[in-house]
Nucleic acid binder design. Sequence first.
DNA 1: GTGACTTAAAAGTCATACTTAATCTGCCGG
DNA 2: CCGGCAGATTAAGTATGACTTTTAAGTCAC
Lengths: 233, 233
Amino acid sequence: MTAQARWLHARVLETLGPAITGGAYPPGSVLRTDELAQEFEVSRSVMREAVRVLESMHLVESRRRVGVTVLPTEEWNVFDPQVIRWRLAGADRPRQLRSLTVLRSAVEPVAAGLAASQATAEQCAALTECAIGMVANSRGGRLEGYLLYDIEFHRTILKASGNEMFARLGDVVAEVLTGRTHHRVMFEDPDPAAVTLHVKVAEAVRERDAARAEELTRRITVGALEELDVLAP
Amino acid sequence: MTAQARWLHARVLETLGPAITGGAYPPGSVLRTDELAQEFEVSRSVMREAVRVLESMHLVESRRRVGVTVLPTEEWNVFDPQVIRWRLAGADRPRQLRSLTVLRSAVEPVAAGLAASQATAEQCAALTECAIGMVANSRGGRLEGYLLYDIEFHRTILKASGNEMFARLGDVVAEVLTGRTHHRVMFEDPDPAAVTLHVKVAEAVRERDAARAEELTRRITVGALEELDVLAP
DNA sequence: GTGACTTAAAAGTCATACTTAATCTGCCGG
DNA sequence: CCGGCAGATTAAGTATGACTTTTAAGTCAC
């Protein structure tokens, strides 16, 4: 995913971050910067920078004379893409996938409704193209191809909504979709009904029918939720 | 809001962060760590820690031999509470308020629906109490009192949804509500219809009527959107 | 037992020396 | 005139040591 980190502090985070979100250091645990620095064989400066980043994600809190305390889960910046990635890579992946899917079910329909009135001609064209690509890859186990178009489809919808916060969720949706494909949380071939819905959403957006775009997208996300219920109850 | 920052790097961020989000250093600008360190009269180490934090928010990117480059807005972690606060304090506050209100309109109805099935008895009681508090403070310019109950109401809904990501939006909603009260984006007294809706939502959640809770909350958020349209078109 | 004083531990800050990598310059050959 | 390679240059990255500040915790007197 994230190639090889260029800087030392980033390489430290690559293992320290997942360790924390994964529960290796449960909330309340206290770490010492110096010890960590030794453990990871980096200088204190590097470790301090790493801690600063963790702190900005509200994963830890640093207090004088105490150390670096792991904060309770409720404090974590669960919207931070990095944190999301770490958690998706860890043990509570199913829980995380559910949270994200619920979030999608709230956001995407509204985004699609907005997209119907805001999308540019290019974005409409892109949507149609993605829908076509999905159809073309919907049979015969061509999951990778399907996934690419699926991701691009949802990314485009979110971006076309014209809301920057929605747009920023494109990466999150991509992670979720990728996750369910790569971890076989999806049947061999995608659900034909879902494919059809995507085609129709593209159509609705093109025709500026906000209500229909919203409703159809809602059905897509409801489908995603049900799929989760079936496979990871 | 954030009292006096305890650490130097945090105090640097207090002015450097808003400066970046506020456009004082437009995307593409290049800063030099050493210069900044001199400017802020801190050591290089401290400035480096500050830069690391900005980097983790995807506000800047640091490259060797080049410097610290301000990234384009699309890259920013717009869900980071800190970034949200900085932007709300700056010039594009109206734009930001709109983004957040749209986000609320997507998330809160779904959250309320979930809350109807997930809320504990205590949470139901808290909701009712908040609704009562809102009614009690809805007349005679008692905006501050009203605001407190309003915030707590929405926080409780989001938390009761059982979705950690929704729960984390409590702070964001609080900022939005506070913002519209303190910046007079609200009429002298709150809209009576809105007050009634809150009472009814509390009722629907108590009665486990998910569909009704969702629909009523949708009306609240639509109201908030319309209010924005009227006051900041 | 309570309160004031002391101690020590760990983070915070600063200064400096040194390393690394990317950009830029300019030379050279084609 | 152009294209590419080589070395110079620059700004970030890393390491380390000395010193400061905060504060938990322990101690002693009352």
